[in-house]
Nucleic acid binder design. Sequence first.
DNA 1: TCACATTTGTCCGTATGTATC
DNA 2: AGATACATACGGACAAATGTG
Lengths: 237, 237
Amino acid sequence: MAHALQLFKPIRGKRTFEEISSEIKRLIFDGVLKPGDKLPSEIELARMFAVGRQSVREALRLLELSGFLNIRRGVKGGPVVEDTLFNKIGNLFLNAFKFKKISLEDLTKARIEIEKSVLLYAIENADAEDLKSLKDNIRKAKSTLRKGNPAFEENIDFHRLLARSSKNHVFLLVMESILAVLSDFTSRVNDVGLDRSREVTLCHEKILRAIQAKDREEGTRVLEEHLNEVRRILVED
Amino acid sequence: MAHALQLFKPIRGKRTFEEISSEIKRLIFDGVLKPGDKLPSEIELARMFAVGRQSVREALRLLELSGFLNIRRGVKGGPVVEDTLFNKIGNLFLNAFKFKKISLEDLTKARIEIEKSVLLYAIENADAEDLKSLKDNIRKAKSTLRKGNPAFEENIDFHRLLARSSKNHVFLLVMESILAVLSDFTSRVNDVGLDRSREVTLCHEKILRAIQAKDREEGTRVLEEHLNEVRRILVED
DNA sequence: TCACATTTGTCCGTATGTATC
DNA sequence: AGATACATACGGACAAATGTG
């Protein structure tokens, strides 16, 4: 019987701004509005929906935070359809972490398991372009290191590229969320770490070689060792 | 050099409602405000922050959508700190799916890999209470089936309980997101499916037995078979 | 460089809906 | 049933930002 409940109308009537938000979202889902498209100004939207400007603004807030559009101020500004969904999900994930809903222990453990799967998919599906991106990443990291700076951004980006190589958007999304937390970490503890960044980069290089050689065993071994090392570093701080 | 950028102030001055939102969020992170606590009314908040009510309202919109509080209307109503983070992340994940950012193919493939890890952790960490919940779930599903109804809700809930048994909140969160999509699916195609729900319930029973016996091989085998079956069913529709 | 137009950002006053006592 | 306290919503006004000529 429970599943039949879905047939009835929602008991609690939606608020005005929620209806406006849903309506605009529907247009985006249906492809009527596409990334890059500019929406009418708040005043015009209010006229079109026959509501006050406040309701329109609150609807836009929801869509903005959900990752469907950006809002620019000034002339030629206004709401623009823009896809930042993965980014926003990463933000919420980071919130959950800060809210103590997720421990560093849980994060790193789950990461090891998930990233092993990602690696296997990457070995299977990475194309020439992916390999080039990964190689470029390592080259840039080494260049940064030679200048005497830790290559934190490049190190994090390596895992993003790895997820992209898996050709699976769920993996990419989960990885994006995990990296949002790690970025937050490294952005705060940014002294010391040159040596560690160097070690990390070397590990990444080994992983890349395993992908090129399609060596699952070696790849998994190095990755697991690498992530356990990262885990130890993080827990120390 | 890139990492040093984080030291500077944000270039773009935050908007008023964003600052208010951050401030309240900070109080929640720091534990000053806890779930169940009631915040002052909009009017009072506006007075306290020395801003207009509209700014407060938009700040509350952000916090509401982010899963930090609920807002109740009427006397004795107002903003109440309430943790619905996982729920909201699931919603955004569902959005990403509807927005065609994620294919059913990607979802089911990733799910198989992730849930295999979840199962191994569950076998390791499930306590007596978890086993009881899982058993109850299957009993309830069977009861529903005997009444001639498909046990969709119970079937989905089984996987939630499985993730809970893993004792890892990241797994739980990822599972919650995946199930949000599946719930949306089954809520729309709710005719036919009694036989399938019966098969699914039997599979769940086998998985539970494998957990009780701590049999990793058998558990992984049944789970993989089960999820592949689910995948076939979903892709058919 | 400067003035102008457009659009978001913000505040205020007021009215209505809604839930609790 | 009526009073109360709150969110919800409308309209008008001005400030701030920003692209354009």
